[in-house]
Design a protein around this nucleic acid. Structure first.
Length: 211
DNA sequence: CAGTCGCC
DNA sequence: GCAC
């Protein structure tokens, strides 16, 4: 794991290999604008608690922006061109796309900006991101709001894991050998950040789906 | 009924 | 590890 570049200077050409954390890449003073962007997306495409094929509702609530959104229901996990309630996903906000291009150095735009909202008690079990059609592109993750305990493992479910607290403004790149590694969120310190009036954590994940 | 973005 |  590489420690991040300073928030004050632009990220140099990213080595698209492995797992990189960029602590505080989004300055605190700029985070409210990100929240405004996300609120606009959520107004058009409401958060939903997806139901897994096993029939249980996930504790995280989700929506998406972009050409495709990730959805789950009794039928399975997949990318879909429409919100479960109907209608296209809103476009990915320009400032989000800007971060993607700056951090990844890629020309290719992401197909999906998944928006995960962690309210009190929400968690995300260990899983792999493997519904995309091309694993050569990295996944970019942006944390906003409450602190979260992120756990990263290996490509095998039984591989050893390491945990790290993510804070508002942190950006994580999961690419290369880490692209198919198991990862999850063990817990969130509800109310640890003042960014959202009622607490909670927003996680954006940007992906090329190539589907 | 195997595999799991679930839970205990 | 289980149970959906």
């Amino acid at each position: 794991m590489n420690s991040g570049d300073s928030a004050d200077r632009p990220v140099p050409a990213l080595r698209l290999r492995g797992f990189d954390i960029h602590p505080g890449l989004i300055p605190a003073a700029g985070q409210a604008a990100w929240v405004d962007d996300i609120r606009a997306v959520v107004a058009a495409a409401p958060l939903v608690a997806p139901v897994t094929p096993g029939g249980r509702a996930m504790s995280v609530r989700m929506t998406a922006a972009g050409r495709l959104g990730w959805v789950a229901d009794r039928a399975g996990y997949r990318y879909a061109a429409r919100h479960p309630g109907g209608g296209d996903w809103p476009p990915i906000p320009a400032r989000v796309l800007g971060l993607w291009h700056r951090v990844t150095g890629l020309q290719r735009a992401p197909d999906c900006c998944l928006i995960n909202f962690y309210g009190a008690g929400a968690r995300m079990g260990m899983h792999q991101d493997k519904d995309e059609g091309d694993f050569t592109f990295p996944v970019l993750s942006v944390s906003l709001g409450d602190d979260a305990l992120f756990r990263m493992g290996g490509v095998d479910r039984t591989a050893p894991t390491q945990s790290v607290w993510l804070h508002s403004g942190d950006v994580v790149v999961i690419g290369g050998d880490a692209r198919l590694a198991f990862h999850g969120i063990d817990r969130v310190r509800h109310g640890s950040s003042a960014l959202l009036a009622n607490g909670g954590r927003i996680n954006l994940t940007l992906r090329v789906v190539a589907q």
